[in-house]
Design a protein around this nucleic acid. Structure first.
Length: 184
DNA sequence: AATAATGGCAACCGCCTCGAG
DNA sequence: ACTCGAGGCGGTTGCCATTAT
């Protein structure tokens, strides 16, 4: 899980952050803010790159970062927004307060990608086995707030933005995603 | 009990965008 | 108009933990 700490040829540390480094970073930002990431490590007494400091702060040390498992509603939300926007992890994370783009991305790659593929496959198989020719199947799926909304299984397969899984039937409700977070 | 396979998290790398000079 | 540096983002990798064989 943790990379072996090392240093590059410019003397900057790499690998896992130590508690001491975390403490220094938090203490500095709490006191002075992060006005300049490239200069921050020098003033904070850290042998890290500015990028590394920024990443550490944004994804783990920020006060409002929530840790722990994703709820089914959050997972549903991720899948849906991903179908709409693609790999826009920061945009997806913006809809899930307290979640970071890194968490969303990791969760997608480890869990949801496989699931969405399986669901898409299952839907396609269901569709193929149905004898009715022109009747579109309309299912109800929960939106980000848990409310059921109509969902067209037929249209999702053909949406060009996401070949495997999409919610094109929800396009008319895309305002839902831009108007505010899925979870207050 | 030992080993292999898989899952999950954390970090780095490289590219892109944007603003300042 | 161009260049350069900083910040931001997405993809990928590394490593430990857990599960399966």
């Amino acid at each position: 899980m943790v990379r072996t700490p090392s240093s590059d040829n410019s003397g900057l540390r790499k690998g896992a952050w130590s508690p001491d480094e975390d403490t220094k970073l938090v203490a500095y930002i709490t006191r002075y803010g992060h006005w300049n990431w490239s200069q921050l490590p020098r003033f904070a007494g850290l042998a890290r790159s500015g990028k590394s400091c920024r990443l550490r702060w944004m994804n783990y040390l920020r006060p409002n970062v929530k840790r722990g498992n994703f709820t089914p509603q959050q997972e549903e939300c991720i899948i849906r927004i991903h179908a709409e926007r693609g790999n826009k992890w920061s945009a997806i994370a913006a809809e899930l307060p307290g979640r970071t783009d890194l968490e969303v991305k990791n969760h997608w790659h480890t869990t949801l990608r496989k699931r969405s593929q399986e669901e898409a496959l299952a839907i396609e198989e269901t569709r193929a086995s149905k004898s009715s020719k022109n009747k579109e199947s309309m299912d109800l799926v929960p939106n980000c707030n848990g409310a059921a909304v109509p969902f067209s299984a037929t249209s999702q397969i053909t949406n060009s933005s996401s070949p495997l899984f999409s919610f094109s039937s929800l396009s008319s409700s895309s305002k839902e995603f831009s108007s505010g977070p899925c979870f207050p």
